[in-house]
Design a protein around this nucleic acid. Structure first.
Lengths: 105, 105
DNA sequence: TCAATAGTTCAATATTAGTGAACTATTGAA
DNA sequence: TTCAATAGTTCACTAATATTGAACTATTGA
């Protein structure tokens, strides 16, 4: 009955604290690394950082990434398509994302 | 009777998640910016991001920065001398700190 | 010795994260 | 069309973390 509505901040409202906070979690960092490596959209389960994580936890991580402006989510069929908002992040904080993703750990 | 002991992680144990998490707070980011601008040690109150913050809150922010490996604290008289561990951070995550501190907000 | 200064620690409350269970929405097949 | 499977979300509960006032420790200087 009620469609799930995704909340995406406009580019101008993407904050540094928000971005850093979203990336300051090893699981979320792995999600973002997956999305960056794929260079395409991925479903939540495809980008899941580990197989044994609770669905609700995974969903929460995607929500945090979305609300921080790091990813854009749209619905396609039964899945959610998540893409990295690379252009937006780069426009706000040039080179930051690439640099953070470049570290091995 | 009991000296306050400061906990500082060795360089090798400074983690990306720890650094990003520590910097993902506007107040702590301001503290680190102050220390970077000063390029010297500062007391906690000198580097305080706003004057009306509770002492205990300020103390807690410094503890988080310290435990993340971002600052080194030593005691001098009645004050604590805080310095940015720039070399250590740069060794672990080259250019990251400078980049994060370069954004205006 | 006493007051002032600089922080820390403690205890209480408030916010946030992780998770299982129940739910919604879409697809595909009987 | 109905039903099961799939993909996520939302809710409710618990656990961890942040904020703050009050009490405390340590140092200095009068």
């Amino acid at each position: 009955m009620f469609m799930v509505q995704f909340v995406h901040p406009p580019r101008s409202e993407i904050s540094l604290a928000g971005v850093l906070g979203a990336l300051a979690d090893p699981m979320r960092l792995r999600i973002v690394k997956s999305l960056a490596a794929q260079n395409d959209c991925m479903s939540c389960t495809e980008a899941a950082p580990c197989p044994d994580m609770a669905k609700s936890t995974l969903s929460n991580h995607f929500r945090i990434l979305r609300e921080a402006g790091l990813i854009r989510t749209s619905k396609q069929g039964v899945q959610h398509r998540n893409v990295l908002r690379e252009e937006d992040i780069n426009a706000r904080f040039p080179k930051l994302l690439k640099m953070i993703l470049s570290y091995p750990e």
